[in-house]
Structure formats: structure tokens, C-alpha cells
């Protein structure tokens, strides 16, 4: 299926990728530094950021996760292309 996604999609996606990357880095770091309270604060801050970004993307481009971690539109929109390797 060919859909031309708007430039905004790639921009929003990259914003989420950036925030999620910070969260991955801090997750691994906190796994070995469980008492670093400043980093825990930063982690929680970005965890909130990612919630907002996920919502913004999903409202326009459909669910990012399933098994109930995202709401579904009607009809069921999880199977809708494109998939990550296709964009």
C-alpha cells in the first residue's frame, strides 16, 4: 500500500524517538544506579513527555501499541500500513 505520509509525521515520530531514547538510556543507567534521585526525576519528567507525544501521534496516525495499550478507532486500525520498516 502506498501512502504518502506528511512531513509532520516524520517530525513527530522523531520527537518521540528522541524522548524515548533518553528514557532507554536512563532506564539502563538506573538499572545500575538505583539511588541517583536526580536521574529518577529526569526519568519521570520524560515519561510524562512521551505520554503526550504518543497521544499526539495516535490521534492522527493511529495506535502505536496494542493489546489495549492504545485505544482503537473503528474499524480496527492496528493493522493499517505503513509498518515501521516501510516508512
Amino acid at each position: 500500500m502506498e501512502t504518502n505520509l506528511p512531513a509532520e509525521y516524520y517530525q513527530l515520530l522523531e520527537e518521540l524517538q528522541a524522548v524515548d531514547f533518553v528514557l532507554v538510556e536512563l532506564t539502563l543507567y538506573l538499572d545500575t544506579h538505583p539511588n541517583d534521585t536526580a536521574s529518577i526525576q529526569q526519568f519521570n519528567h520524560y515519561a510524562q513527555e512521551r505520554k503526550k507525544l504518543k497521544k499526539a501521534i495516535e490521534s492522527k496516525y493511529g495506535p502505536m501499541q496494542q493489546y489495549g495499550n492504545s485505544y482503537s478507532g473503528t474499524p480496527w486500525d492496528w493493522n493499517k500500513a505503513p509498518w515501521p520498516w516501510q516508512v
Binding site: 516524520y10 531514547f21 501499541q65 495499550n69 509498518w83
Partner: peptide, 9 residues
Amino acid sequence: IYEKKLQYP
């Protein structure tokens, strides 16, 4: 849980 995005573009 699978997320519909790559870790890096």
C-alpha cells in the same frame, strides 16, 4: 509489547 516505531530513523 510491540511498539509501531523504530528506535532510530
